[in-house]
């Protein structure tokens, strides 16, 4: 799922310090799972902002709410419609949530409460790592299920560069931020699977047009789209 880090309190406070009434809006999806922007964290952030406002001598009212997912109209629209005299929103969803609130016609400014960092998995409690770069053309069938696009610092497609250390780490690895060499892992995995010889095949230059390089992406599933008639019937 999507992972994020809390923004520093001072930075968030700076966004809304001149408002009278602010909604801190959490998300029950990824932000909750990575424990950065769910109901609990919204409570903590709102309280911290109240204290900060107090010490700065500002009169700001902070409301709290957490919706099931900020990336879906059905959960976001009621919030946008019921803002009343709220002057700004601090969203603790990933960047998608902030964009989506704006897209759904939010009349007041929406500020990010978190820095969205990557799509990844949980290594252990409190530790996550990037595992997918959403390049739009999955190559995992070629690389033993370990992604060189997301996990190799140079997104190489034809094997490890000369920078792999003796203990299988990437050349950018440091003790503070250990980065295993994805290609060392791919080689090891494919050796286990008995498919190492497949890596002898040359992979041609990748078509990045399906990745972010091709411009902002949109996905349309005609079979899932409701035509206007059906929408009317449903409503």
């Amino acid at each position: 799922m999507i992972k994020a880090n809390s923004k520093p309190l001072g930075e968030v406070f700076g966004f809304i310090e001149n408002c009278k009434k602010v909604l801190v809006l959490g998300c029950g999806g990824c932000a909750t799972v990575c424990q950065v922007g769910g109901e609990k964290e919204v409570g903590v952030l709102a309280q911290a902002l109240r204290l900060k406002a107090g010490t700065e001598g500002k009169q700001i009212e902070f409301l709290e709410n957490t919706v099931t997912r900020q990336c879906e109209p059905e959960f976001v629209d009621p919030v946008v419609e019921g803002l009343g005299d709220v002057e700004a929103i601090v969203s603790t969803a990933c960047g998608v949530g902030v964009n989506h609130l704006v897209e759904r016609g939010c009349p007041v400014p929406v500020f990010p409460g978190v820095d969205t960092v990557f799509m990844g998995s949980t290594l252990e409690h409190g530790e996550w790592a990037e595992r997918c770069a959403a390049c739009g053309q999955c190559v995992l069938h070629l690389t033993g299920g370990i992604c060189p696009i997301a996990r190799c610092a140079k997104n190489l497609l034809n094997g490890p560069c000369g920078g792999t250390t003796e203990d299988g780490m990437c050349e950018i690895s440091t003790p503070e931020n250990p980065v295993p060499c994805a290609w060392a892992e791919i080689v090891e995995r494919m050796k286990q699977l008995g498919t190492l010889q497949e890596l002898g095949e040359i992979q041609p230059p990748k078509d990045w047009s399906t990745a972010r390089d091709g411009g902002p992406r949109r996905r349309v599933r005609a079979d899932l789209k409701l035509d206007r008639q059906e929408q009317k019937v449903q409503s």
Partner: peptide, 17 residues
């Protein structure tokens, strides 16, 4: 070509590629 870098068993394949 870095013949002696980890993972050693893949380095000759890298050269072949």
């Amino acid at each position: 070509w870095t013949p002696m870098a980890h993972p050693l068993e893949f380095r000759v394949t890298r050269l072949a590629k």
